[in-house]
Amino acid sequence: MTLATIQDAPPAAVSGGPDDAVLIVDHLTMRFGGLTAVGDVSFKVGRGDITALIGPNGAGKTTVFNCITGFYKPTEGMIRLRQADGATYMLERLPGHDVNRVARVARTFQNIRLFPQMTVLENLLVAMHKPLMRASGFSLAGILGLSGYRKAEAAAIDKAAAWIARIGLTHRADEPAGDLPYGDQRRLEIARAMCTDPVLLCLDEPAAGLNPRESGELNTLLRLIRDEFDTSVLLIEHDMSVVMKISDRIVVLDYGIKIADGTPEQIRTDTRVIAAYLGVDDEEVAAVEAEVGLTGASA
Protein backbone atom coordinates (compact mmCIF):
# COMPACT_ATOMS: atom_id res chain seq x y z
CA MET A 1 0.00 0.00 0.00
CA THR A 2 2.61 2.53 1.03
CA LEU A 3 6.17 2.49 2.18
CA ALA A 4 4.78 2.06 5.61
CA THR A 5 3.32 -1.35 4.84
CA ILE A 6 5.54 -4.38 5.25
CA GLN A 7 4.09 -7.81 4.69
CA ASP A 8 7.00 -9.72 6.16
CA ALA A 9 7.78 -7.99 9.37
CA PRO A 10 11.40 -8.34 10.52
CA PRO A 11 11.83 -10.31 13.73
CA ALA A 12 11.00 -8.20 16.69
CA ALA A 13 13.98 -6.62 18.35
CA VAL A 14 12.05 -6.40 21.54
CA SER A 15 12.57 -9.46 23.64
CA GLY A 16 10.07 -10.83 26.08
CA GLY A 17 6.45 -9.84 26.24
CA PRO A 18 3.51 -11.52 24.59
CA ASP A 19 4.14 -13.73 21.56
CA ASP A 20 1.33 -12.43 19.37
CA ALA A 21 1.83 -8.68 19.62
CA VAL A 22 -0.49 -6.17 17.98
CA LEU A 23 1.81 -3.24 18.73
CA ILE A 24 5.58 -3.33 18.99
CA VAL A 25 7.25 -0.19 20.28
CA ASP A 26 10.92 -0.45 19.50
CA HIS A 27 13.60 1.83 21.00
CA LEU A 28 11.28 4.84 20.96
CA THR A 29 12.93 8.18 21.79
CA MET A 30 11.26 11.58 21.72
CA ARG A 31 13.12 14.81 22.36
CA PHE A 32 11.71 18.34 22.57
CA GLY A 33 14.65 20.65 22.07
CA GLY A 34 17.09 19.56 24.76
CA LEU A 35 14.51 17.71 26.82
CA THR A 36 14.26 13.95 26.41
CA ALA A 37 10.64 13.16 27.20
CA VAL A 38 10.91 9.51 26.26
CA GLY A 39 14.25 7.70 26.10
CA ASP A 40 14.70 4.38 24.38
CA VAL A 41 11.45 2.76 25.42
CA SER A 42 10.50 -0.66 24.04
CA PHE A 43 7.43 -2.75 24.83
CA LYS A 44 4.72 -4.84 23.21
CA VAL A 45 0.97 -4.90 23.41
CA GLY A 46 -0.44 -8.42 23.15
CA ARG A 47 -3.36 -9.12 20.85
CA GLY A 48 -6.60 -9.21 22.77
CA ASP A 49 -4.98 -7.95 25.95
CA ILE A 50 -5.58 -4.89 28.05
CA THR A 51 -2.16 -3.35 28.61
CA ALA A 52 -1.68 -0.51 31.05
CA LEU A 53 0.99 2.17 30.79
CA ILE A 54 1.64 3.65 34.20
CA GLY A 55 4.13 5.98 35.82
CA PRO A 56 4.32 9.15 37.88
CA ASN A 57 3.30 12.51 36.43
CA GLY A 58 5.71 13.64 33.75
CA ALA A 59 6.97 10.12 33.09
CA GLY A 60 6.28 10.47 29.37
CA LYS A 61 3.18 8.32 29.10
CA THR A 62 1.13 10.75 27.04
CA THR A 63 4.15 11.45 24.84
CA VAL A 64 4.37 7.73 24.07
CA PHE A 65 0.66 7.82 23.26
CA ASN A 66 1.04 10.79 20.99
CA CYS A 67 3.84 9.04 19.12
CA ILE A 68 1.79 5.89 18.71
CA THR A 69 -1.31 7.75 17.49
CA GLY A 70 0.57 9.94 15.02
CA PHE A 71 0.41 13.31 16.78
CA TYR A 72 4.17 13.43 17.31
CA LYS A 73 6.86 12.10 15.03
CA PRO A 74 9.33 10.22 17.25
CA THR A 75 12.94 11.38 17.19
CA GLU A 76 14.15 7.80 17.00
CA GLY A 77 12.72 4.32 17.04
CA MET A 78 10.00 2.30 15.36
CA ILE A 79 6.38 1.67 16.18
CA ARG A 80 4.90 -1.27 14.34
CA LEU A 81 1.27 -2.31 14.27
CA ARG A 82 0.38 -5.83 13.16
CA GLN A 83 -3.15 -6.52 12.13
CA ALA A 84 -4.64 -9.99 12.51
CA ASP A 85 -4.10 -10.80 8.81
CA GLY A 86 -0.39 -10.11 9.16
CA ALA A 87 -0.35 -6.67 7.51
CA THR A 88 2.13 -4.48 9.37
CA TYR A 89 2.29 -0.71 9.46
CA MET A 90 5.12 1.53 10.57
CA LEU A 91 3.03 4.03 12.50
CA GLU A 92 5.76 6.65 12.78
CA ARG A 93 5.82 6.98 9.01
CA LEU A 94 2.09 7.41 8.46
CA PRO A 95 0.50 10.86 8.19
CA GLY A 96 -1.47 11.69 11.36
CA HIS A 97 -4.95 10.77 10.21
CA ASP A 98 -3.82 7.55 8.48
CA VAL A 99 -2.86 6.06 11.84
CA ASN A 100 -6.56 5.69 12.37
CA ARG A 101 -7.81 5.48 8.78
CA VAL A 102 -5.36 2.87 7.50
CA ALA A 103 -3.65 1.27 10.48
CA ARG A 104 -6.83 1.40 12.56
CA VAL A 105 -5.49 2.71 15.85
CA ALA A 106 -8.08 4.74 17.77
CA ARG A 107 -7.60 6.88 20.83
CA THR A 108 -9.27 9.01 23.44
CA PHE A 109 -7.88 12.10 25.13
CA GLN A 110 -6.98 13.06 28.67
CA ASN A 111 -9.22 16.12 28.46
CA ILE A 112 -12.24 14.76 26.62
CA ARG A 113 -12.45 15.83 23.01
CA LEU A 114 -16.00 15.33 21.82
CA PHE A 115 -17.80 17.49 19.28
CA PRO A 116 -19.81 19.26 21.97
CA GLN A 117 -22.50 20.89 19.83
CA MET A 118 -23.15 17.81 17.75
CA THR A 119 -25.50 15.18 19.10
CA VAL A 120 -24.42 11.86 20.57
CA LEU A 121 -25.51 10.11 17.39
CA GLU A 122 -23.68 12.57 15.14
CA ASN A 123 -20.51 12.13 17.15
CA LEU A 124 -20.57 8.44 16.38
CA LEU A 125 -21.42 8.98 12.72
CA VAL A 126 -18.39 11.25 12.31
CA ALA A 127 -16.31 8.30 13.45
CA MET A 128 -17.67 6.27 10.54
CA HIS A 129 -16.43 8.89 8.11
CA LYS A 130 -14.36 6.55 5.95
CA PRO A 131 -17.02 3.95 5.03
CA LEU A 132 -19.72 6.62 4.69
CA MET A 133 -17.55 8.81 2.46
CA ARG A 134 -17.00 5.86 0.18
CA ALA A 135 -20.70 5.04 0.15
CA SER A 136 -21.63 8.64 -0.65
CA GLY A 137 -19.26 8.59 -3.61
CA PHE A 138 -17.26 11.32 -1.86
CA SER A 139 -20.48 13.36 -1.62
CA LEU A 140 -21.26 13.29 -5.35
CA ALA A 141 -23.66 10.36 -5.19
CA GLY A 142 -24.88 11.53 -1.82
CA ILE A 143 -25.83 14.97 -3.02
CA LEU A 144 -27.94 13.43 -5.75
CA GLY A 145 -29.63 11.21 -3.17
CA LEU A 146 -28.70 7.83 -4.66
CA SER A 147 -30.05 4.82 -2.78
CA GLY A 148 -26.67 3.19 -2.17
CA TYR A 149 -25.78 5.93 0.24
CA ARG A 150 -29.08 5.80 2.03
CA LYS A 151 -28.56 2.10 2.73
CA ALA A 152 -25.06 2.70 4.00
CA GLU A 153 -26.24 5.53 6.21
CA ALA A 154 -29.00 3.38 7.69
CA ALA A 155 -26.43 0.67 8.48
CA ALA A 156 -24.14 3.24 10.09
CA ILE A 157 -26.97 4.58 12.22
CA ASP A 158 -27.81 1.03 13.33
CA LYS A 159 -24.23 0.48 14.36
CA ALA A 160 -24.14 3.80 16.19
CA ALA A 161 -27.44 2.99 17.90
CA ALA A 162 -26.01 -0.31 19.13
CA TRP A 163 -23.07 1.53 20.68
CA ILE A 164 -25.32 4.16 22.19
CA ALA A 165 -27.32 1.33 23.77
CA ARG A 166 -24.12 -0.28 25.09
CA ILE A 167 -23.14 2.89 26.89
CA GLY A 168 -26.71 3.42 28.08
CA LEU A 169 -27.40 6.73 26.36
CA THR A 170 -30.28 5.77 24.06
CA HIS A 171 -32.60 8.26 25.76
CA ARG A 172 -30.14 11.10 25.14
CA ALA A 173 -29.01 10.13 21.64
CA ASP A 174 -30.28 13.35 20.03
CA GLU A 175 -28.88 15.75 22.60
CA PRO A 176 -25.67 17.71 22.14
CA ALA A 177 -22.74 15.71 23.48
CA GLY A 178 -21.55 18.74 25.42
CA ASP A 179 -24.66 18.58 27.63
CA LEU A 180 -23.87 15.10 28.96
CA PRO A 181 -22.42 14.53 32.43
CA TYR A 182 -18.70 13.91 32.61
CA GLY A 183 -18.81 10.15 33.00
CA ASP A 184 -21.16 9.74 30.02
CA GLN A 185 -18.86 11.91 27.93
CA ARG A 186 -15.94 9.62 28.76
CA ARG A 187 -17.85 6.52 27.69
CA LEU A 188 -19.18 8.27 24.59
CA GLU A 189 -15.63 9.15 23.58
CA ILE A 190 -14.66 5.49 23.92
CA ALA A 191 -17.71 4.38 21.92
CA ARG A 192 -16.81 6.93 19.26
CA ALA A 193 -13.29 5.54 19.02
CA MET A 194 -14.74 2.02 18.78
CA CYS A 195 -16.93 3.06 15.85
CA THR A 196 -13.79 3.33 13.73
CA ASP A 197 -13.36 -0.48 14.12
CA PRO A 198 -9.92 -0.22 15.67
CA VAL A 199 -7.44 -3.07 16.11
CA LEU A 200 -5.86 -1.10 18.93
CA LEU A 201 -7.67 1.28 21.24
CA CYS A 202 -5.53 3.74 23.19
CA LEU A 203 -7.19 5.30 26.24
CA ASP A 204 -5.56 8.26 27.94
CA GLU A 205 -6.62 8.20 31.60
CA PRO A 206 -10.17 6.97 31.01
CA ALA A 207 -11.00 6.90 34.73
CA ALA A 208 -9.72 10.37 35.57
CA GLY A 209 -12.33 12.44 37.37
CA LEU A 210 -14.90 9.66 37.52
CA ASN A 211 -16.82 8.85 40.68
CA PRO A 212 -16.89 5.21 41.89
CA ARG A 213 -20.15 4.41 40.11
CA GLU A 214 -18.92 5.84 36.81
CA SER A 215 -15.63 4.05 37.31
CA GLY A 216 -17.53 0.78 37.62
CA GLU A 217 -19.45 1.49 34.40
CA LEU A 218 -16.16 2.17 32.67
CA ASN A 219 -14.69 -1.15 33.82
CA THR A 220 -17.73 -2.97 32.46
CA LEU A 221 -17.35 -1.20 29.12
CA LEU A 222 -13.64 -2.03 28.87
CA ARG A 223 -14.25 -5.71 29.65
CA LEU A 224 -17.01 -5.78 27.05
CA ILE A 225 -14.62 -4.37 24.47
CA ARG A 226 -11.99 -6.96 25.32
CA ASP A 227 -14.38 -9.89 25.35
CA GLU A 228 -16.65 -9.13 22.42
CA PHE A 229 -14.50 -7.23 19.94
CA ASP A 230 -11.18 -7.95 18.24
CA THR A 231 -9.71 -4.88 19.82
CA SER A 232 -6.66 -4.73 22.01
CA VAL A 233 -6.48 -1.97 24.57
CA LEU A 234 -3.57 0.18 25.69
CA LEU A 235 -4.39 2.55 28.50
CA ILE A 236 -2.75 5.17 30.65
CA GLU A 237 -4.17 5.20 34.12
CA HIS A 238 -3.39 6.58 37.54
CA ASP A 239 -6.13 4.80 39.42
CA MET A 240 -4.30 1.69 40.65
CA SER A 241 -7.50 -0.11 41.58
CA VAL A 242 -8.62 0.09 37.93
CA VAL A 243 -5.20 -0.87 36.61
CA MET A 244 -4.73 -3.88 38.82
CA LYS A 245 -8.24 -5.14 38.26
CA ILE A 246 -8.45 -5.09 34.48
CA SER A 247 -4.93 -5.16 33.03
CA ASP A 248 -3.36 -8.26 31.57
CA ARG A 249 0.00 -6.59 31.42
CA ILE A 250 1.55 -3.41 32.83
CA VAL A 251 4.39 -1.27 31.52
CA VAL A 252 5.91 1.23 33.96
CA LEU A 253 7.67 4.41 32.87
CA ASP A 254 9.66 6.81 35.00
CA TYR A 255 11.48 9.90 33.72
CA GLY A 256 10.87 8.72 30.17
CA ILE A 257 12.52 5.33 30.74
CA LYS A 258 10.85 1.95 31.05
CA ILE A 259 11.57 0.52 34.47
CA ALA A 260 9.31 -2.51 34.52
CA ASP A 261 7.11 -4.59 32.26
CA GLY A 262 5.05 -7.58 33.36
CA THR A 263 1.84 -9.00 34.74
CA PRO A 264 0.05 -7.15 37.55
CA GLU A 265 1.49 -9.66 40.02
CA GLN A 266 5.04 -9.01 38.86
CA ILE A 267 4.57 -5.26 38.97
CA ARG A 268 3.00 -5.41 42.39
CA THR A 269 6.19 -6.83 43.83
CA ASP A 270 8.69 -4.86 41.78
CA THR A 271 10.68 -2.76 44.22
CA ARG A 272 11.92 -0.33 41.57
CA VAL A 273 8.36 0.44 40.62
CA ILE A 274 7.36 1.11 44.17
CA ALA A 275 10.36 3.33 44.80
CA ALA A 276 10.04 5.27 41.56
CA TYR A 277 6.30 5.46 41.34
CA LEU A 278 5.78 6.49 44.89
CA GLY A 279 8.85 8.54 45.57
CA VAL A 280 10.75 7.63 48.71
CA ASP A 281 8.35 8.86 51.31
CA ASP A 282 7.92 5.83 53.60
CA GLU A 283 4.45 6.68 54.73
CA GLU A 284 3.16 7.02 51.21
CA VAL A 285 4.87 3.79 50.19
CA ALA A 286 3.14 2.01 53.00
CA ALA A 287 -0.20 3.50 52.07
CA VAL A 288 -0.01 2.49 48.44
CA GLU A 289 1.49 -0.88 49.27
CA ALA A 290 -1.64 -1.48 51.24
CA GLU A 291 -3.76 -0.30 48.35
CA VAL A 292 -2.16 -2.68 45.85
CA GLY A 293 -2.38 -5.49 48.37
CA LEU A 294 1.30 -5.76 49.17
CA THR A 295 1.77 -5.67 52.89
CA GLY A 296 4.99 -6.42 54.63
CA ALA A 297 7.30 -6.28 51.61
CA SER A 298 10.13 -3.79 51.88
CA ALA A 299 12.62 -2.30 49.56
Binding site: N100, R101, F109, R113, M118, L125, H129, S139, T196
Partner: peptide, 30 residues
Amino acid sequence: VTLRMRRLPLGRAWEALREDEIACRSLGID
Protein backbone atom coordinates in the same frame (compact mmCIF):
# COMPACT_ATOMS: atom_id res chain seq x y z
CA VAL B 1 -26.56 22.12 -1.52
CA THR B 2 -25.60 23.33 1.94
CA LEU B 3 -28.57 21.66 3.58
CA ARG B 4 -27.82 18.44 1.72
CA MET B 5 -24.12 18.57 2.57
CA ARG B 6 -24.90 18.89 6.26
CA ARG B 7 -26.50 15.47 6.16
CA LEU B 8 -23.63 13.86 4.28
CA PRO B 9 -20.48 12.55 5.92
CA LEU B 10 -18.42 15.36 4.45
CA GLY B 11 -20.69 18.03 5.90
CA ARG B 12 -20.67 16.31 9.26
CA ALA B 13 -16.90 16.21 9.10
CA TRP B 14 -16.91 20.01 8.48
CA GLU B 15 -18.92 20.60 11.60
CA ALA B 16 -16.77 18.18 13.56
CA LEU B 17 -13.72 20.06 12.32
CA ARG B 18 -15.19 23.31 13.61
CA GLU B 19 -15.68 21.72 17.01
CA ASP B 20 -12.40 19.88 17.43
CA GLU B 21 -9.75 19.43 14.80
CA ILE B 22 -7.53 17.15 16.86
CA ALA B 23 -10.37 14.76 17.58
CA CYS B 24 -11.12 14.65 13.85
CA ARG B 25 -7.58 13.63 13.09
CA SER B 26 -7.75 10.87 15.67
CA LEU B 27 -10.84 9.52 13.88
CA GLY B 28 -9.04 9.18 10.58
CA ILE B 29 -10.37 12.30 8.91
CA ASP B 30 -7.91 14.03 6.61
